[in-house]
Design a protein around this nucleic acid. Structure first.
Lengths: 212, 212
DNA sequence: CGGGTATGTATACTCCGTATAGTGGCCCGG
DNA sequence: CCGGGCCACTATACGGAGTATACATACCCG
């Protein structure tokens, strides 16, 4: 429901019409999550249906049926406040395609897991470079966009760390019979002990300490 | 499309019927991503429509219309191999509700961003503790489930780091006018300089090095 | 025998994501 | 001046994901 509440938050600043909402949404996240215009209208329809926004019929221009402007209602404000007050639940995390892929690859025969890990690692590192490059040449941008970019960076770094972790686990748990069927697993593609560029395994020992 | 390919991978091991697929899918990820039975059937229908699986009509039992068994086809194998060979693209990352929420909170007036961050941090740390507890009392479980669990841990840790990073940024960029409208921001809830439990800011300086 | 539970299949509905249709204003060249 | 292309803007269609629920059979148990 990110879109619903995102639009609601934008409408709390000032009333807007559909197309404008799309622009503001993308601007807030620096174009990280392009928003299809169609979703704006369907979401606005649902918001109006639920009484969270109200369409102040065509603007004061004499031309009807053009530029319906939407404004947030009391009900919408309450819903939005609730969203901000409630933390995002991790009890049912969104499906992680990479995690599913690796889990399936491990349990399947004839799949070169090491190659999958390597390919993903390369792709993620490339994205990481793109992110840092974007970040370096961004002086006068919005703070929110910078933080969203940092979020992408932190997540990509975690992904690389996890891939290294998986690789290390795999060579420790199943070095005897490396995928009997299928094409001969090119073991040269995967360094077999702690890789030179790997990060210290600070995770998996719970290095994040609580504070209060 | 994680479900589609997940089911395909399971069917590559052996032919199965719908309900069985659900059980295997959940078992592969240790129940992390519960799969609704309905999705299995709709996905199987689409897979059959696209020629990736073939339904070997009711099993050899004499009772028709019960227990349709599905088997992967050549076309399905090719599609699956393609999935394993192509890394998950980060060019259009999935929408991160937390990142959107914080970006919106920053640009909105009258929202106590520090409180949002603190609430989320607490919730994420609690999830992290649940994960590590699960991990500690798991001796004889599948390797894939262990790695999925590690993925959750790595992601949650990255989230906590990012939240600390955001907090630090916020107090550096806008300490002068702390949310003029709205309820008085309780600044006591947020430690204002480097928090005692915070991790070293190894990210944002790109500590993940390339190798190979 | 009757009911509760597990197994198993199927359908309905909402939301997300993307593509595309369709309209009116604006510029710009013949 | 006018006709075509482009842009801003609204709207609808369609497939996939996610959830709930209907429906049937089988098995256990009092």
């Amino acid at each position: 429901m990110s879109i619903r509440y995102g639009l609601l938050a934008l409408l709390q600043r000032q009333p807007m019409y559909g197309y404008q909402l799309r622009g503001e949404f993308e601007a807030s996240t620096g174009g990280t999550w392009p928003l299809n215009v169609g979703q704006v209208y369907t979401t606005l329809f649902r918001l109006e249906r639920d009484g969270a926004v109200a369409a102040t019929g065509h603007v004061e221009s004499d031309d009807p049926e053009l530029q319906k402007t939407y404004a947030i209602t009391e009900r919408g404000c309450a819903e939005l406040a609730d969203w901000f007050a409630t933390p995002v639940s991790r009890s049912r995390p969104p499906r992680d395609e990479l995690a599913i892929k690796l889990a399936m690859a491990i349990a399947s025969h004839g799949v070169d897991v090491a190659a999958v890990i390597q390919g993903q690692r390369t792709a993620t590192l490339r994205s990481l470079q793109d992110y840092t490059r974007l970040k370096s040449r961004s002086d006068e941008v919005e703070l929110s966009w910078l933080l969203v970019l940092d979020s992408l960076i932190f997540n990509a770094e975690a992904e690389v760390r996890w891939l290294d972790h998986c690789e290390a686990r795999l060579v420790r748990f199943a070095p005897q019979g490396a995928s009997p069927p299928g094409p001969p697993a090119q073991k040269g593609a995967a360094p077999l002990d702690s890789p030179p560029g790997a990060l210290p395994p600070e995770s998996a020992t719970s290095s994040v300490r609580s504070r209060s």
